[in-house]
């Protein structure tokens, strides 16, 4: 269910030209502390490499 939503959302974001790679989805169990740290580290690196998001961003003021 949720996984189908993420699969289609990521693909649709890419299609309209927003970097869908910012959508990161995976499973981590509550007992997997190491894996959690590793996933978050990887995700942070990925997002840092992409730089700031500048599409669909609302500038207020």
């Amino acid at each position: 269910m949720a996984r189908r939503k993420f699969a289609t959302l990521k693909s649709f974001l890419n299609y309209v030209g927003v970097e869908g790679d910012r959508t990161i989805f995976t499973w981590v169990s509550a007992s997997e502390g190491d894996r959690w740290a590793q996933v978050i580290k990887g995700a942070t690196e990925k997002i840092k490499a992409l730089g700031p998001a500048n599409k669909m961003v609302k500038h207020i003021g």
Partner: peptide, 19 residues
């Protein structure tokens, strides 16, 4: 409804990060 279920064997999994 397709978003109300999933199919373990046939659904694509390539969107999953670090599976």
């Amino acid at each position: 409804p397709p978003l109300g279920k999933f199919d373990e064997h046939h659904d694509k999994g390539d969107f999953v990060y670090n599976p």
